[in-house]
Amino acid sequence: MDNAFFSRFHPRVIDVFLRDGTFWYDLGKPRRTITFESSAKRNFMLVTDGAGALSVNGVHHPLSVGSVFYFPLRNRIQLSYTPEQPLQFYSVHYDYKLIEWDGSSVTCLEPQENSLPLPVVTQAADAESFALHMRRLYDLWQGKAPDYEWQARLMFLNLVNEVRRLYSQRNEGDLTRRAIAKCMDYIKTHYAEPLEREELAEIAALSASYFSIMFKKVAGCTPTQYITKIRLDKAKQLLQSSNMTVSEVAREVGFQDPLYFARVFAGHAGMPPREYRKA
């Protein structure tokens, strides 16, 4: 699972549709296949009735009730259905940017990927529940309440995250990912100790270079960044719940240099440790 992507994923819902049987008519004439020579919109969809197929650059994917699918950008897309079971589906037209925030500054990046780091088609584990959430998103969008765009973005993020969760669960048997998860657990309990990449790679039974690559892919950040996050989270707890000095807190969570700790903490929290304690 590409957590580095989703940690930066910032979508905007543009429109929400319910595509019923009328979608398959053009100028009053029925059609069984719709073709996009080069898809120009990002769409996220759920089949609520019928059966058919999605073709992306000639690769066919069957669709049925509960199928969650999307259109990769600038690909040749064909959507079709069987005569007996016309497809009906919800469709979310969206776009997104990649947002990077280091605690003091924000960078907005245009996505370079045509596809999400997810399968083009995923079968929902609970089709009825997923359809209910899509229906709520559709009703919210049609209702146009004062905060509907913000609420729609939250609901859409939850839907995407559910697909992400399903994909992750179905790939949890991957030995490398489980090794990285084991290493992350080790960091959580040994954060106060010196932690070197080579030691962590040995725990995961991976080469140091491959460990770094896979750690970032699984955790969404480098091993050093993850260690720092764990240490700073513990430091925040100690600053608010103990009478330890800032220097004592720094050493307690694994920083040997209190001045360096204060600089890193301020960059992460937006204020020095002493101010954080008073906030």
Rank of each mutant, 00 (worst) to 15 (best):
D126F: 14
E113T: 07
S91D: 11
S129G: 04
S105A: 07
E113I: 01
P111Q: 13
P117H: 01
E128G: 10
S104C: 08
L132I: 11
S105C: 09
S115P: 00
V121K: 09
L109N: 15
A124P: 01
L116R: 02
A131D: 10
H133D: 12
L132P: 01
P111A: 03
H133W: 05
L109C: 06
P111G: 01
V120P: 13
E113N: 07
H93S: 13
K97R: 15
Y90A: 04
Y96K: 01
E113C: 00
V92C: 04
L98S: 11
A125Y: 05
H133R: 05
T107S: 11
P111F: 07
Y96C: 00
L116G: 01
V92M: 03
N114T: 07
A131K: 04
S104N: 08
P119S: 03
Y94G: 02
A131V: 05
D102T: 05
D126L: 11
H93R: 14
E100V: 14
D102G: 09
L118C: 01
S91W: 05
T122F: 00
T122A: 03
D102W: 08
A124I: 09
L118R: 02
A131T: 11
D102K: 08
V106L: 10
D95G: 15
C108I: 14
A131L: 06
V121S: 03
E128M: 07
L118E: 01
A124N: 02
Q112C: 03
K97N: 14
Q112I: 04
S91H: 07
S104W: 07
D95P: 12
